[in-house]
Design a protein around this nucleic acid. Structure first.
Lengths: 122, 122
DNA sequence: TCATTATTTAAGCAATTGCTTAAATACGTA
DNA sequence: TACGTATTTAAGCAATTGCTTAAATAATGA
């Protein structure tokens, strides 16, 4: 059960932490999935500009990020699968946008980018 | 240069986005690295309890998360390598804690866990 | 000095990731 | 209907990830 044989381990603290982890297991699992999606540089850029421009099609994103359409499409698929973005069809083009439900998680990340952008110019 | 041959593409919008992405390239790269570290479920848990308990040793974390010491140690190594956590040596035990410089990024994530935890009981 | 404890490091390996190219769908229009 | 455009899907593959076990370091105390 115990990894080390130290005497000074605070058993109460350890058991308390273990319970907190267990109680929030599902939250950790769900949150880490979304954070992992945002942890890819290309996907972070996609989310950032989708938020800024409100909605864009795979074609636009391909032009902006200078990547192939399938590469973009596969990233969009992952993001949609994780309910981070949503899509709207108009003719044969599909417009993607950030799901409002995850914005509270993403906005702080976007702020960091924007703040650093403001600092560079000083 | 252009991925599709659509007529209705907003060239100005695309070029503007492209410039913003380029200007913030380094920010995107650095931020995505940290977010990717937090996007692993085990590491997210480590960061959460390190923040809550202020500091813990690999041995404690191994007990709490019920994982082997080397597995924990390797996660800690990545986190330290990314400057997300720092360490303090006391005898033969090493205490890890979250770097204050990255807390503004992590706190919103922790809040999500805590809020969900509060909601469960209602 | 030697044995014990806490931790890291290394090697191996199965699973996942993110691209590539090529083929398949879906929609609009002549 | 057939063709062109926008997008997705599939297969292949090199690179990365995250664990495992075993060995190497480092610090403490007998």
């Amino acid at each position: 059960m115990s990894a080390c044989k130290r005497i000074f381990a605070d058993l109460g603290q350890i058991n308390n932490c273990r319970e907190i982890i267990k109680k929030n297991q599902q939250s950790f699992s769900e949150l880490s999935q979304v954070v992992a999606l945002a942890g890819n540089e290309v996907r972070l850029k996609i989310l950032f500009i989708l938020d800024q421009e409100h909605e864009l099609c795979p074609c636009d994103l391909s032009d902006i990020l200078e990547m192939t359409i399938p590469a973009i499409s596969q990233h969009l698929h992952k993001l949609k699968n994780g309910s981070v973005i949503q899509s709207r069809k108009s003719g044969q083009t599909i417009f993607y946008s950030v799901c409002p439900s995850h914005l509270h998680l993403l906005k702080p990340l976007f702020s960091i980018i924007k703040n650093q952008s403001a600092t560079i110019r000083v």
